[in-house]
């Protein structure tokens, strides 16, 4: 990816992700924004599903963190941007982590790669021992 995905700038909300309930809240918040942004039903579903995967990653692999979401605008096209941040152990082998079926936890290993397929823009920044930041954007069609 050459250009960095749009991050929320104007009005935005930050949600702590520290429990299973927070993952549910993260889904609901992203859904509300996706509806506000008038994403199609399928795109809403894709984005909320991606957010669910990433929020769970933040909780399970990152030992908790935050989700920051907001509406973004690029040349008249609207979108929803979500940033998941944790200060966990980081990902040692990113390429491996982005491979379908690879898992470090009890999951199916579809979290990261799936979230990438479900969104229009995807970026990940990780450092062993410091944490991980994943940014995703879904644009209106």
């Amino acid at each position: 990816m050459i250009t960095a995905p749009a991050v929320p700038e104007g009005e935005q909300q930050t949600l702590p992700i520290a429990s299973n309930d927070d993952v549910v809240r993260a889904r609901q918040l992203v859904r509300t924004l996706a509806q506000q942004c008038k994403l199609s039903l399928v795109d809403q579903t894709k984005l909320v599903t991606a957010a669910s995967e990433l929020a769970r990653n933040t909780l399970v692999h990152g030992n908790g963190g935050t989700m920051r979401v907001g509406l973004v605008d690029k040349g008249g096209r609207r979108g929803v941007s979500a940033v998941f941040q944790d200060t966990g152990p980081g990902i040692p082998d990113l390429e491996l982590a982005l491979t379908d079926g690879w898992t470090s936890g009890g999951g199916m290993g579809l979290g990261l790669s799936g979230a990438r397929r479900l969104t229009d823009e995807f970026a990940i920044d990780t450092e062993v021992g410091r944490g991980t930041v994943v940014t995703v954007v879904k644009w209106t069609r």
């Binding site: 039903l41 399928v42 809403q44 579903t45 894709k46 599903t49 995967e53 379908d100 199916m108 579809l110 790669s113 799936g114 397929r117 479900l118």
Partner: peptide, 14 residues
């Protein structure tokens, strides 16, 4: 299963 859910699951790889 709703259509949007089915489409998303397929995209997810499930």
């Amino acid at each position: 299963m709703r259509p949007a859910v089915a489409i998303t699951l397929v995209e997810l790889g499930l």
